[in-house]
Design a protein around this nucleic acid. Sequence first.
DNA 1: CCTACCAATGGTGAATTGCAACTGGTTGCA
DNA 2: TGCAACCAGTTGCAATTCACCATTGGTAGG
Lengths: 167, 167
Amino acid sequence: MEQRSGCPINLSLEVFGDKWSLIVIRDMMFGNRRHFNVLLANSNEGIASNILVSRLQRLVELGMITRTPDPSHKQKVLYSLAEPAIQLVPVLAHLGAWGRRHLPASRELSVRAELLERGGPAFWDRFMDELREQHLGIPRPEGIRSAFDELHEAYQTELARMNEPSA
Amino acid sequence: MEQRSGCPINLSLEVFGDKWSLIVIRDMMFGNRRHFNVLLANSNEGIASNILVSRLQRLVELGMITRTPDPSHKQKVLYSLAEPAIQLVPVLAHLGAWGRRHLPASRELSVRAELLERGGPAFWDRFMDELREQHLGIPRPEGIRSAFDELHEAYQTELARMNEPSA
DNA sequence: CCTACCAATGGTGAATTGCAACTGGTTGCA
DNA sequence: TGCAACCAGTTGCAATTCACCATTGGTAGG
């Protein structure tokens, strides 16, 4: 793997400059999808199994995620975000905010991006601490409301609103 | 052009999920490269001419950049950033900050990313106003130091330091 | 008039992608 | 014990995209 240049933006693009790598990380991060079959089946975008395999392998090699056997099930494998991927939260927040503003994003899928944007760095830090707990086993401060739950509830609320549009 | 899903992050990736589109925008934005030959020759990463053509065309179609004849040379074409691309400044700032931290970025090319990161939203806004002046012809507030110049000078200073490493 | 330069094209082989069928092994349940 | 469903991938193949290199018609300057 030769690199094209030492520019930080270019290096980031050499890691994430394709259509699927960040999608996988997004699903692991915001959808808490940690198993192969869940990532494969619940993908909004319909990733193919061979593409998913190659992306997971590549992300493991690059140190963005880790792959461990799932103790509850001999055949299952648990994928976890590594620290570098967790630190992508601000990047994804800005990318989502940009896409929401400039591209035809659907209402229900924009809610989380909006909350993530409005929350700002404080919310991102809270979310990252939570990811560190979920994926790295690092305990987070107690008594703090879950950022993941907030995102999830905002999404569910919007879904409910769309199914009952009557005033 | 069908879209895979209405997720803002996915939509952003459908626009920039390749190895070259953001490189072109980076060069236009931070290198002030507005002509085809300059983008082709001064690229650190060595983009091929047909790839550059296709990316420029695509970015024009997507409304990210505009293409106008250069009045000074009948044959030359001037490429300008449109407002959506200008609003990528925070995304690129975060992407550069992340790459600088987690990938083997070269010292001299990291200086600008560092300055951009330290400057924060206030610096980004200043830079975006400057891009609007350069690319859209919208005057910016007077008497404010040029963010572009600061970035350029930081880079030049670092280059000079590397060529004279003697204490 | 001649050379260099301009934004792009065209040809080619290689690499990547997308899709579907399929693998060997495991699990839960009857 | 038998068996269907499920597990994380593999494999084969066609289509697309990519990267590299040579070349285009038109323009500018001396």
